[in-house]
Write a protein that binds this DNA or RNA. Sequence first.
DNA 1: TCTGGGGTCCTAGGACCC
DNA 2: TCTGGGGTCCTAGGACCC
Length: 420
Amino acid sequence: MKRPCSPAAADKVTTVFHVDMDAFFVSVEELFDPSLKGKPVVVGGRPDQRGVVSAASYEARKFGLHSAMPLRTAYQKCPQAIFVDGHPERYRDYSHRVFGILQEFSPLVEMASVDEAYLDMTGTERLFGAPFEAAHKLHQRVKQATQLNCSIGISASRMVAKVSSDQAKPNGILWVLPGEEARFLAPLEVRRLPGVGKVTERQLHDCGIRKVGDLAKLDERFLEERFGQWGLALAGKSKGLDAGGWYDSEIGAEEDPKSVSHEHTFLEDTTDREIIQATLARLCEMVARRLREHGFRARTVQLKLRYKDFKTITRAETLAHATMVDTEIIDAIRALFLRNWTGKPVRLLGVHTSSFETGEGQLHLLDQGPAERWKKALGAMDALRDRFGEDSVSLASGLGGRFRERTHENPVGLPGKHKR
DNA sequence: TCTGGGGTCCTAGGACCC
DNA sequence: TCTGGGGTCCTAGGACCC
C-alpha cells in the first residue's frame, strides 16, 4: 500500500522521524571501555589486517578516517588511533534497546539497519507535542536509557528525513517543514541524496551538476535520456519526493529477507584445495543453518570467487528443488567451484542463496526414512552451535588442521563429524 | 592506500514459450 | 525466408547502503 508522500499531493501531511545513532559502534565500545572516550578510535580490526574501517570516532575523522577506508590506510593516516575489534552482539543488543524506546513513541517503527530507524509520528501531537518537542523528548529518553547520542531528522517524507538527520549530526535535531523540502535540499552536494554514490556523483559532476538545486532545475527529459529510469527518480529526489521504490513503502512493514549469504576473505590468498573446500563447506553450513532458522528453502545457490587481482566472478545454479540441507548446498557450490576456478590464488569465497520457498513443498525429503535422521542431526548441530559457537561442529569433508585451530572438541559424536 | 560482510535493487542478454 | 513481439525465468555484473 502506498502512503501519500509527496507533500504537494498529500491531503494529510505525515510526520516522519529518522533516528540515526551517532558513531554507533564506537559509542558502544566506549561504554565498555570508557578510556576510549575523546580519543581517535577505529572499529573494524587490527591495522595490519585485511579489512576496512567499520566506524571511526569523531576524533579519528579529524585525521581523514572514515568508514569503508582500508584499515592499513587508516593506520598510515593516523598511527596513534586505537584500533578495536567490532562486537556485533553488543551492537545488536543496543539496537534492540533503542528499538524498544522508539516503540514508546510510535507503534510504527522500522529499524532500517542496526543503527537507524524510521518512525511514523503522524498524529502523536496530543501525546508528545509538536514534532520538534517530541523529537527532543525522544532524544533525551534514548540518552537516558542507553547513554548514546543520536541525531533526528524530521520531515513529511522518509528520504528528506534521512537527509536531514545527516545534516543534524552530531547529536542534533533538524525539522524540514512541509513545503520547504526543495529549498532545504538545493544547496546540498548531490552526494547527500540517498542512492547517489561515487559513480553517480562523478557522472553528475561530468554534466556540471554539483548541487541538488542544479539537479532540480534540469529538464527531466535530459535526465531520462542520460540516466533512464534512474534519472527520473533523481529528478524526483531533488525536489524532495520519495518517488516510488523503498522510500515510498509503509513504515514498519516487516519483509522477509530475499537472500542469505556468507563470505570470507582469506588472511592470505590461497590455492590450497583443502583450505578452499573446507571454507566452502563451512560457508554452506552457515547459510543452510540460517535458512532453517528462517524456515526458508532456497532454489538458487550462487558461488562468489574473488582472485588476488580483485577480479570477482559469480556463478549461480537454480536447483531442481529448493533446499535447506547443508549437503545439497555444498554439492552444488562445490560443482560450481570446480567448473569455474582458474587455479589462480583465491582471495575471497562466498555462498549466496535466494529464490526462497516457505511452504511445505519439498519437505518430504526430510520426512521419510533415513532423511528423518538427517533432519534430527541438522537440528542437533544447530543446537550445538548455539551453545558452543559456529565452529564447534562440521559436516565438512577435508577439514584441514588449519581450520581446527579455533574449534572446540565435538562433545557428542555426531553423524558426519570429521576428526583429524 | 589496497580494498569486509551482509544485504537490496537494477540492467541486460539469452533461452524458451505462445 | 528473413526474422514479431510479449512474458517469464535465469544468469552475471554492478551501484549502493550500513
